[in-house]
Amino acid sequence: MLQMVVCVKQVPDTAEVRIDPRTNTLVRAGVPAIINPFDAHAVEAAVRLKEKYGGRVTALSMGPLQAEEVLRRALGMGADRAILLTDRAFAGSDTLATSYILARAIEALSRETPVDLVFCGKQAIDGDTAQVGPGIATRLGFTQLTYCMAIDAVDLEQGYIQVQRKLEGKREIIRGRLPALLTVVKDLNELSYLSLPALIRAALATITTWNKDNLDLDPAQIGLKGSPTSVRRIFAPPARPGGEIIPGEPRAAAATLVARLVQMKIIADK
């Protein structure tokens, strides 16, 4: 029986976030929110392990009340229960504070039944930091296995998990001691299409919410106060100085361009 926790984050569909050029602030209103795509694969992975080895999957998210939606999605994918960590005091948390809060919640769950595996996405597409997973692993003292693209085996008796990690141009096969925290890439699995009864169950399920008082937290380590990084300024990406259109028919334009590049010695003789 594997006790598993999956951390899922609600993120804005990033393609649509814009910056207001006048006020230099983010225009986030009305941008649809989705489950962080990597986290969906993390849920899928946990649910498949449950089917194979037995156990229980808890989906965990920190965010505003609307983040309930991504937890419902996790439930629809087969998670057994969902917990939303929501509190005004959590607002403004950077990755250090976020990993602290999530780790405290996982510790609380571990007091019920010890947790064997925690799953995170490789990174959240809004911040792209890939820091929360390692942060949680470090705080819990779990084996940290990032960029997992395959789970080869779990042996509860021997207390290890063997995974394949996706590295630059390489694949690493590594065996780690349990308990462990995995961050996952999309190659790990294909999301399965849910059955209708599962979807209905998820839509009707109640989601547990925990606020700061449900967790044993050091107030200095959460929210803005617990976040060492701060944003000094945000701005629209600088435009690269605009270009020159080479006129003429394709052939003539090509000849002009090639001559230009050769002349600039940018492309030289091989």
């Binding site: 299409y193 849910l194 059955s195 209708l196 009864p197 979807l199």
Partner: peptide
């Protein structure tokens, strides 16, 4: 019949 497993309602 909904287009999902066990999709009859």
């Amino acid at each position: 019949r909904a287009g999902r497993a066990e999709g009859d309602v």
